[in-house]
Design a binder for these strands. Structure first.
Lengths: 229, 229
DNA sequence: CGATGACCTGATGTCGACATTACTACAACG
DNA sequence: CGTTGTAGTAATGTCGACATCAGGTCATCG
């Protein structure tokens, strides 16, 4: 319905040009602040403090915090304030299993009905990771690549479900690079390239296997007490 | 972490007793109003009208509408108001595929680590459907049964993801019973009983097959032009 | 007569202030 | 000395009013 059909007369060069509200702007700021380390997991996010710092009223801040709650980045308790999410080992397991279910569907959708433009976008998302030296930037691009995968799936609700996990995965990856950056910077570009190649080959089984292995590499760093690397 | 471990000293008889906000109350009211037919798909939900009807301010109404938006029940546009979601055939396809991915994971989780109490709750949820004559009530119990399945999975984020679909599935089932109630009232109790039996048998493959068939029965009513009933 | 522009209406977005609630520390009591 | 009741405090929840924006209507111009 809403998806732009390639080949029609509408100019795909112009973006929908939809105006965003102030709440989204505030949500972006707070999100980046959390990812930047200004608010570590468990820290309290006071509405008055945030509204004063950004020079906006508490209304947009409230809505922004609810947006971040939907993304799983913070937890809101009634009359008890908002705190940055702390991921327990059980949470990481939940994240991994649900992400696996979503990504499996995404891979199938991409292989079934992805356009050449979508695959080109995946290529680009994988290539920009090649010459990155900062671990934080690499995490950002890692998430961006998987965003591109879900976008290429052409499945709005699947992308929405991923939106409910991506920030928590981002948080998890941040703790991961704190444990060990070894090999992360060097391996990620190669792995993502292999992922795109598997998608291009349209071989569902091998693609699913590669994506599963890719997820496992991330989890193994934390929980892998018996099998280091 | 938060899950009540059976056999510990904490009395499972008492509920967590946490108070809800006014926004959630308003959200429940609007949700029920939509399911009751007061606001058909495409209808506009005006904040002033709702706040006046419920004798609350616009603040809680705003938050409630955002909650309903997260559930996919309404769509909010910037400065353009909120409207009840209308499900296109493409939306129904998205709903079905994503629900399948989530339910597959739920079935696996239930078979792996569901307690006897969880299975008993599933039995109960399936049994209460036996003597229902109203189609709307049947839809409600249908959703409630699948809620129980996701609850038995013991996977918070999976249940959250299902929360983003359940209202849309509810909406879809309402349009389904408008097309044909034939056999729906009689078949649902039996199918759900079979679903529980498959879960109890701990046979993953057969359970997945039964759940897939169950979902297919619902979709076939709308899209099945070649195979009526 | 058709197209274009400004105005008007109705809605949502935002703001500041008040009411309500939960946490904490302290005092009184058993 | 441990427990319970109570006030204080600081945060969130809620409210009403103002500012801003999108869509529709009508007058004007070509």
């Amino acid at each position: 319905m809403e998806e732009g059909q390639p080949g029609m007369s509408d100019q795909v060069k112009v973006s929908p040009a939809r105006r965003r509200g102030l709440s989204d702007e505030v949500a972006d700021r707070i999100r980046e602040a959390i990812f930047g380390g200004a608010y570590p997991p468990g820290a309290q996010l006071r509405e008055v403090e945030l509204s004063a710092a950004m020079e906006v009223s508490r209304g947009p801040v409230r809505e922004a915090l609810r947006v971040l709650e939907r993304e799983g980045l913070v937890r809101c308790a009634w009359h008890r304030g908002t705190t940055v999410t702390t991921l327990s080992p059980g949470d990481v397991a939940e994240l991994d299993s649900l992400r696996g279910a979503l990504e499996d569907l995404a891979v199938r959708q991409v292989i079934m009905r992805a356009s050449d433009e979508d695959l080109a976008a995946l290529d680009k998302a994988a290539e920009v990771m090649a010459h990155v030296t900062d671990a934080h930037d690499m995490v950002r691009l890692d998430i961006a690549f998987h965003d591109a995968v879900f976008a290429a799936a052409g499945h709005q609700r699947l992308a929405d479900a991923w939106d409910g996990l991506r920030c928590q995965v981002h948080l998890f990856l941040l703790t991961r690079i704190n444990r060990s950056v070894e090999g992360y910077l060097g391996r990620m570009p190669r792995e993502h390239r292999d992922l795109v190649a598997a998608l291009r080959s349209r071989d569902i089984d091998s693609a699913l296997r590669l994506f599963a292995a890719h997820r496992r590499h991330a989890v193994d760093v934390l929980g892998g007490s018996s099998k280091p690397n």
